[in-house]
Nucleic acid binder design. Structure first.
Lengths: 159, 159
DNA sequence: TGATCATATGCAACTTAGTTGCATTTGTCA
DNA sequence: TGACAAATGCAACTAAGTTGCATATGATCA
């Protein structure tokens, strides 16, 4: 798994490895597609270790309750910011009014194909260097970043 | 000006022409670049007719005050939704956490070049039909919509 | 021209994504 | 193990956008 390599790399650079940081890196390397901060938080809550807590609320007869792993949304946002800074993550905007995040691939820069029906998001590797160079020539802009997002129907949803 | 043609077209289709609807169409046809809902609201407030209102607040000695044209943000959002439905506007997302809107051009579909330094947004007309067709062939997706946004430095900001 | 009515508007309250300040906790290293 | 910088939790906040409902108004017709 790529997660352990990322963790090792961060450790070597002198950054702390906390359980939450590690878990977020693991979640993002499981190839679930680009995730929102809420996706990440929900996965942490669902997959985290269960904790038995004794309570003494005799009034409603509850003697113990089960809770899932705790993590605050602020922490998720801060981890995302950290991982973006370290260029481990990239931010993806599909016009949904929220951001998604994906591990930066070692392979070539890629784009996304989103199915308007089922919502599946597929990677789309593209050789676009020539394309960008010709735009630079024609416009006198120096291009630093670009985003190309495609929306349509996947094969299964065309029927 | 294109605004009057748009207004006439809406009237012919049986839609009401209210002062706010008209003003929003005019603002968007002034070629200020893609605007946010707040941009539109602010322009309405600044350029609207002044209204003298008599007050009788003797306690603080104010006998009249000047107010700018009123328009509620809800109204702007609803007009945007209406104009999107009529395919008069298109929604543009530059990853800012908010949407921008631009009149749909009769000319070819185009993209945007945003300067990371001064924020200027330039139109970029592109012939991308072949490009999209080859992606359809390679992926089996039927592409319905795409967004290509480029970010970098305009000529003036490269120095 | 004035009455009618569907449509447009204003307002307040709400939702959701994301941010900030501050007190507390915890990984790391000596 | 103790110390301390970095990470976390929590509450309160901001900003974009939405919803319900009462009121106002543009277009039409008598």
């Amino acid at each position: 798994m790529r997660a352990s390599a990322v963790v090792k790399n961060l450790k070597d650079k002198g950054f702390r490895i906390t359980p939450i940081r590690k878990q977020i890196i693991e979640i993002l390397s499981e190839d679930r597609g680009p995730l929102t901060s809420l996706d990440i938080l929900t996965i942490i809550h669902k997959t985290g270790k269960k904790v038995n807590e004794s309570t003494h609320d005799h009034a409603i007869g509850v003697s113990s309750c089960i809770r899932f792993a705790r993590c605050n949304k602020t922490t998720v946002y801060r981890q995302i910011a950290f991982l973006l800074e370290q260029e481990i993550l990239e931010e993806i905007n599909l016009g949904e009014g929220k951001n998604r995040y994906d591990l930066v691939e070692n392979k070539a820069h890629h784009h996304h194909l989103t199915c308007n029906n089922c919502g599946v998001i597929k990677d789309l590797p593209l050789e676009d260097n020539d394309f960008l160079q010709s735009i630079e020539k024609n416009t006198n802009f120096r291009i630093q970043k670009h985003s190309l997002e495609l929306f349509g129907l996947c094969l299964g949803c065309q029927k």
